[in-house]
């Protein structure tokens, strides 16, 4: 059928009004910032010149679930560099400076060096992907990310045959990130993937959500999204990418290795030592919303299960 009736339009295709208004506000603010140099939006990550989200295409494999509320996704999350409370990132991340931004690429690859954010983004076209997000703390969300496949980026650096793993680092700027004063985790925050995981088509380099640039608290200007793993694997505000032969260190594993492994795949059958991972709570629900069963690999079993065929997932949590 060519003509879409109202009933054919998925809830998730309709831009919620608050976001529509937000876009207008950001557009207006952007215009103002252009006309009056020096006055910009410090809470909104500005994309580099020439990079626009206007041509973002929908990704055909997005899940058909209602998005979480924009305010919940941007107001309730973890970003320990800005505090360990769930509302701390939204409250304190305005101090993060994302312009200028550069990314250092090093290790087992032919094209290493330091690249500006514009260099990194320019060749890519962006798509909107609606993914489930499952935090290791047993809450979850549905987020429309904007980004491009991580594989497309990594291939540009021509990793060598020795590149078995990729490690990522978050910005370390104590002046901008008050949480770095506390030795809660090993700073700078670091995460890693096997090269096969990184090259999996689901692995996303995200630069936006809900049709706009990433807000600081969600990891501006560039973050990873690995939807079949617990949220802490999806490292924020990336400044360094390293290809290496050995399994990289990851901050949570360094902190408590018996609770957080290198893989950290979403798995309802392998509990966290202190709580059950069999179910989760969708954020934005009411007091009476029931828990939702957690899906194997967060519902992405068909896409990623083959990566772990020979692995004991209870041991390699």
């Amino acid at each position: 059928m060519l003509i879409k009736t109202a009933r054919d339009i998925k809830n998730s295709e309709i831009t919620p009004e608050n976001i529509f208004r937000d876009r207008r506000r950001i557009l207006a603010a952007g215009l103002a910032a252009g006309l009056l140099p020096g006055i910009g939006l410090d809470t909104e990550a500005a994309l580099p010149d020439g990079i626009s989200l206007n041509k973002t295409k929908p990704w055909p494999n997005s899940i058909d679930e209602e998005y979480s509320d924009f305010d919940d996704v941007t107001g309730y999350n973890n970003y320990y560099e800005f505090g360990t409370g769930k509302t701390d990132p939204a409250r304190y991340a305005h101090t993060l400076v994302t312009d200028p931004w550069s990314i250092k690429v090093e290790g087992e690859a032919e094209n290493t060096g330091t690249f500006t954010l514009e260099d990194i983004l320019r060749p890519h076209s962006f798509e909107q992907r609606v993914y489930r997000l499952r935090c290791v703390e047993a809450w979850s969300a549905v987020v429309p990310w904007v980004g491009f496949p991580l594989a497309d980026l990594l291939k540009r650096f021509s990793p060598t045959s020795k590149a078995k793993y990729v490690q990522f680092f978050t910005l370390y700027e104590p002046n901008q990130m008050p949480g770095l004063r506390y030795p809660v985790l090993e700073w700078p925050y670091r995460e890693g993937l096997t090269i096969a995981e990184a090259m999996n088509p689901l692995s996303l380099m995200a630069i936006g959500l809900y049709g706009q640039a990433l807000p600081n608290q969600n990891g501006a200007p560039l973050r990873l999204v690995v939807p079949w793993k617990y949220g802490f694997k999806s490292i924020k505000s990336i400044v360094r990418i390293r290809f290496q032969e050995s399994q990289p260190q990851t901050s949570w594993n360094m902190a408590i290795s018996q609770e957080y492994g290198f893989y950290s795949n979403v798995n309802p059958r392998v509990d966290h030592p202190r709580w059950s991972q069999a179910s989760e709570r969708r954020i934005g629900g009411s007091l009476f919303s029931a828990r939702t069963p957690t899906l194997m690999f967060n519902g992405y079993e068909a896409e990623v299960a083959h990566l772990y065929r020979d692995l004991d997932l209870a041991k390699n949590y």
Partner: peptide, 16 residues
């Protein structure tokens, strides 16, 4: 907060 009086609410994860 539970009855959302005025600007009050229980946030994104009310049960927690």
């Amino acid at each position: 907060r539970a009855f959302a009086i005025g600007p009050l609410d229980l946030g994104a994860n009310p049960v927690e």
